[in-house]
Design a binder for these strands. Sequence first.
DNA 1: TATTGTTATACTCTATAACTATA
DNA 2: TATAGTTATAGAGTATAACAATA
Lengths: 152, 152
Amino acid sequence: MAKPQTSGLETHLGYWLRYVSNHVSHAFARKLEARGVTVAEWALLRALFDHDALAPSEIAGNMGMTRGAISKLTDRLEAKALILRTQSRDDKRWQTLALTASGRALVPKLAALADRNDEEFFGHLTATERQAIAEAMRTIVRRHGFKNIPTE
Amino acid sequence: MAKPQTSGLETHLGYWLRYVSNHVSHAFARKLEARGVTVAEWALLRALFDHDALAPSEIAGNMGMTRGAISKLTDRLEAKALILRTQSRDDKRWQTLALTASGRALVPKLAALADRNDEEFFGHLTATERQAIAEAMRTIVRRHGFKNIPTE
DNA sequence: TATTGTTATACTCTATAACTATA
DNA sequence: TATAGTTATAGAGTATAACAATA
């Protein structure tokens, strides 16, 4: 009748999610490494692929990172010639970020790596299982009002 | 007929797991902060709760961390008087780590925080849903031979 | 030599806060 | 003053590698 007083690590669903997520993410990071980018850089490049000309502070809001973190991230991406900073004429405090030609060319290749990584870890699940898990995760995001794009 | 060439972030199950896992883990970290420990420290303390007198290199193997990382971790835990380092008599290269009285008293309180955190994020799911997700994760761990205990 | 634990270095991401330039 | 972007600092985590002590 007495519940165990001290639950173990493996009794928590959060433990299992973190366990798998860490490995999946690290495997993805190793794949991206061959292209010279990190997971955070991939997330930003992918965002610019759809919405070019975003301002750093907008990105900070979308991705749940601080402006300082975005500043360092864009430093690295600019040094790799994957994005371009442009000052706004109207308000010189604002910048807009956009992909360079080589940045835009790279994104589909990175997306293919993401596809391959997902297939590697979740390919054995049925489509129904994958959808059920994804839906459960989306529900949790909705219920808790998460605003960040994960970058780890 | 043509598949989209450049898949988006949200098309990958790995993205959703990382998204939710990061938030769940950060929420847990904030709860642990009130007790002055990190998630990595919690995982080590919980391991010692079951298997006292582990050697740092054994822990490194179990948790998938380097010996250097364990060394820093045990430095902090010893400074907080939660664990004790003891040199082995037989082979002076070996140490054994064990919980102090206050360390042992703390673990059940941390476990309660973990229970509460899990309930907060996954409590709305049915037992069947939770078990299905946990089982899917365990299967992935088994298939890929993961060896690390997640500490982020 | 091989192994244990420690230390040093470097990098990523996180967070806070001070700083500049502009409005 | 308020805001955008930068920079500095500090901490936790990762990884590699050199190191001393011991076997």
